[in-house]
Design a protein around this nucleic acid. Structure first.
Lengths: 310, 310
DNA sequence: ATTAAAAACAACTAATTTTTGTAAGTGATA
DNA sequence: TATCACTTACAAAAATTAGTTGTTTTTAAT
C-alpha cells in the first residue's frame, strides 16, 4: 500500500465511507446531505477528500445529481459489508446464558468449594450448559496478578485475602464451632474456653505457614494461650486428622455436621467472619461475570450488599 | 441501534479502531502512542472517546499498562477483519484482461459494425474470453442519457452525433465514393459531379428522417442540386437497394468493394469525414474502458489523438 | 511510605470539519 | 439561445475536534 493512502487512512472517517455508500444509492449530494443532517457543501468536501484518497473522480455530475464511475461502483460492493460490520460492533451482544460458550475460572478455598460451589455449579450446569468452568484452589499470594493475567475470573474466599483494589461482594457471615473426633471423651461435656486452651489444637492456615489461628486474639482477650500443635491448609483434610487424633479445632459451622467429627459444647461463641466473592476491575462490566455473580448472590438468599471500590 | 451511538459513529475514525486494535496487542498506551507517532495523551483521549462510544471502560489500568475488559477483547476479534477490509479498499485492483468478467456495451452505426467491430471483437474474444459484450444499434437521440444510465459504454459513430460534453477519440478519416448497381450502364464511364446531380439518389440518414445528405453542401458549392429520392438509416441496406434499382449513392469507401454495387468513376472526390469513439465522462477512469479503447486505437494502427474535454 | 511507571486531566495550539455565501455547470424549456 | 430550476464546486469565516505540553493522579512493587 502506498504511503499517501495509509496516511490518509488515519484520517478516514467512518462517516466518509457512509457518504460514499449513500452517494451510490442517492446519486445526489444534496439528498445525501439532507439524509445525514449536513449541508450539501459538507458532502461535497468529503467527496473531494474521497476523490483524493482513491485518486478517482468517483462521481461525475449531471444536471440532477451525480453518477458513479466504475471504481465507485466497485467500492460500493465492498463498503456495504464493512459498514454493516462496523455497525454490528456497536450493537450490544444480547446475553443469553444458554448460549454462553466461554470459559469461567473460579478460585475457591476448600471451604468455599464445599459450601458455596455445589449449589452455584448446579445452577450453572442447568442454565448455561455450554459454559466451561475451571475451579482452582485459592492462592492468596498472587491473586491479583492471576486475575490481571486473566487466569482467574472470580475468587471465593475470606476478606483478608483480597487486596483493597479488587471489587468484592459480601456473601454471608460464618462462625467457627469447636470440634473434636467423634470418639473424643470430651463430647457431651460442657466446656469453657479455658478448658479448650490447653488442648492440642490444629489451625487451618491458607496463606501463612505458621501456627497462628484466626481465633488467637479471642483467646488472648480472655488471658488464654492456645496450644496449637499443627497447621494445615485445608478444611476438609482437617476433619480427617481430627477424627483420628486427640486434636481439637475450630471449623466453620457450615462444614458440620459430618460423620468424622463432633461438635464440642462450648459456652462461648467465637467471633464471626465473612465470606466474599472478589474479582478484578476488568471483569466488572462483563455480562457473563455479572450474571454469575448474581446467581451466586441469589443462590442461597444471601443478603447482597456489594462493595465496589469507586 | 441507539441514537447516541449512531451520532458518535459519524465521528469514529478508522484510526480509533486502529487505536483499539493496537491497544489490545500492546496493552500500554505509551507504546501504542510511540507506534502511531502520537503522544500518550492523544491515545488517552481517543480511548476516552472509545469508552464513551462503547459505554465500557474497555481497558483498566495497571502499574505497567492496561488490560482489556471482556468487551474490549470481544471487539478485538471483530475489528481485525474490518481493518483488513478497509485497507484492502485502497489497494487498486490489478487489471488483468483475461480475468474480466463484466459486461461491456457498444453502440455502433451499421457502418462501424461492419468496418470497426470485427477486428476489435476478435481481439476481445481472444484476450478477455470471460467478458460479455452487447452491441446495439447506434441511437443518436438519447446517446448521452443512455450512457449516463450506464446502458452504453462506448459509441462508434460520426462526430456530429456526439454531444460536446462527451469525451471522444478520433479513429480514422473516411471518404465517400459514388456507387451504382453492378448492372448499371454508367459503370466504366468517366463522370463529373454535374452528371451525378440529376441522377436519382439515396441518402443514408441515421438521425433526421429527411431527404438531406451529408454531401449536399458539396453539390451546392458547385451550384448543383442533387436529386435525392430516398432516405434510409442503414448503410448495408443501401447496397441491396442500389443493386436492384437505378439509384446511385455515396457510400463510405471501406464498405467497398462488395458484390452488389460498383464504384462510379467520378472526377471529383467528396469531402471526407471522421470516425470517432465516444464515451461518458464516468467511464474515463475505468481500467476496462481504457483498455478496450486502447485496443480499438491500436487494432488498426489509427493515429490516435485523444480529445478529452477538460 | 517511597518510588517509578503509566494513565488521566487541563489549558492551549493546530488542524479539520462545517457552515454561510457565492459561483459555475447542466439540461430542460420557452 | 436565453432563462430557469436545480445541482455541484469553491472560498472564507466559524465551530468543532485532534493533538501537544505541562502537570497530577493512579497503580503496584520495592
Amino acid at each position: 500500500m502506498n504511503s499517501k493512502a495509509s496516511r490518509s487512512l488515519n484520517r478516514l472517517y467512518i462517516k466518509q465511507l457512509q457518504v460514499l455508500h449513500s452517494l451510490l444509492q442517492e446519486r445526489n449530494l444534496s439528498k445525501v446531505a439532507a439524509k445525514m443532517g449536513l449541508t450539501q457543501q459538507a458532502i461535497s468536501e468529503q467527496l473531494r477528500k474521497l476523490r483524493d484518497l482513491f485518486d478517482d473522480p468517483l462521481f461525475v455530475r449531471q444536471s440532477n445529481g451525480v453518477i458513479p464511475t466504475a471504481l465507485a461502483e466497485s467500492l460500493g460492493g465492498k463498503i456495504s459489508p464493512i459498514l454493516r460490520d462496523i455497525e454490528a460492533l456497536l450493537d450490544k451482544p444480547s446475553f443469553v446464558p444458554g448460549e454462553q460458550t466461554g470459559l469461567f475460572r473460579i478460585s475457591a478455598t476448600d471451604y468455599a468449594m464445599a459450601v458455596i460451589l455445589p449449589p452455584l455449579l448446579a445452577e450453572l450446569r442447568r442454565l448455561a450448559p455450554h459454559l466451561k468452568i475451571i475451579i482452582s484452589e485459592f492462592e492468596s499470594d498472587n491473586l491479583h496478578a492471576l486475575m490481571a493475567a486473566g487466569e482467574i475470573d472470580l475468587a471465593l474466599t475470606f476478606p483478608d485475602f483480597i487486596p483493597a483494589e479488587m471489587p468484592s461482594v459480601f456473601l454471608f457471615e460464618e462462625h467457627h464451632v469447636c470440634v473434636a473426633s467423634r470418639h473424643s471423651p470430651l463430647l457431651n461435656t460442657p466446656l469453657l474456653l479455658a478448658d479448650i486452651a490447653p488442648l492440642p489444637q490444629l489451625v487451618i492456615s491458607l496463606a501463612r505457614n505458621n501456627l497462628q489461628g484466626s481465633a488467637d486474639a479471642w483467646f488472648a482477650e480472655q488471658g488464654l494461650t492456645r496450644n496449637i500443635v499443627m497447621s494445615i491448609p485445608s478444611f476438609s483434610a482437617a476433619s480427617d486428622i481430627i477424627e483420628s487424633t486427640d486434636i481439637v479445632a475450630f471449623l466453620p459451622s457450615r462444614l458440620l455436621p459430618n460423620h468424622k467429627v463432633a461438635i464440642l459444647q462450648l459456652s462461648d461463641t467465637p467471633p464471626s467472619f465473612n465470606l466474599v466473592a472478589a474479582w478484578h476491575k476488568r471483569s466488572t462490566t462483563s455480562r457473563l461475570h455479572q450474571w454469575i455473580l448474581q446467581l451466586l448472590i441469589d443462590s442461597e438468599g444471601f443478603s447482597a450488599s456489594t462493595s465496589l471500590p469507586k
